[in-house]
Simulated assay, not measured.
Amino acid sequence: MTSKAPSSTSYLLLAPIAVLLLVFLVSSVNRSGGGSDGLGILCTRRAVAGNYTVVPEEAPNKPELSLLVGILTMPKLRERRDIVRLAYALQPPVPAYARVDVRFVFCSVTDPVDAALVSLEAAHHGDIIVLDCTENMNDGKTYAYFSSVPRLFADAPYDFVMKTDDDAYLRVPALVEELRGKPRDDVYLGWGFNMSGDPMLFMHGMGYVMSWDLVSWVATAEEILARNDTVGPEDLMLGKWVNLAGKGKNRYDLKPRMYDLNWDMDNLRPDTVLVHTLKNNRRWATVFDYFNVTQLASHLP
Rank of each mutant, 00 (worst) to 15 (best):
P56T: 01
V172H: 04
Y259R: 01
A87Q: 12
G190Y: 11
E79M: 03
E135G: 05
G205H: 04
Y252D: 13
A123E: 13
V105K: 02
T110K: 14
Y169K: 03
F104Q: 04
M162C: 09
R78P: 02
D264H: 06
L25M: 14
N51I: 10
L300D: 10
S36Y: 04
N292K: 14
V23T: 14
Y290F: 15
A122F: 06
V176Q: 12
L131W: 09
K240S: 14
V100W: 10
R180T: 11
D260A: 04
L20N: 11
Y188E: 14
N61L: 12
D271I: 04
D155M: 01
A122N: 05
I224K: 01
Y158V: 06
V218Y: 06
S3C: 04
F106L: 15
G181Q: 09
Y52D: 13
P60C: 01
V242H: 03
V102W: 09
T2H: 07
V149E: 12
E135P: 12
L67T: 08
N243C: 00
Y11L: 14
V209L: 07
G246K: 02
K4C: 10
N136C: 08
G126M: 07
D127W: 07
P16F: 11
G70W: 08
D186M: 01
A174L: 05
R151N: 11
V48A: 02
M1A: 10
A59L: 09
R227S: 13
E57I: 00
S216P: 05
P92L: 00
A174N: 11
E234L: 03
V218K: 05
L201A: 02
V275Y: 04
L14C: 03
L77M: 10
A98I: 08
R80M: 06
M200Y: 07
N250M: 10
Y143R: 00
A89Y: 09
L296C: 00
I128F: 15
P95C: 03
A221P: 13
N30Q: 08
L25C: 11
S3M: 13
V209M: 07
M1V: 13
R45Y: 02
M137K: 04
V102H: 04
A221M: 12
V69A: 00
V118W: 04
L179T: 03
S32R: 05
R282M: 15
R31P: 13
I41H: 07
V293H: 11
R184G: 06
L296E: 12
N136P: 04
V149K: 02
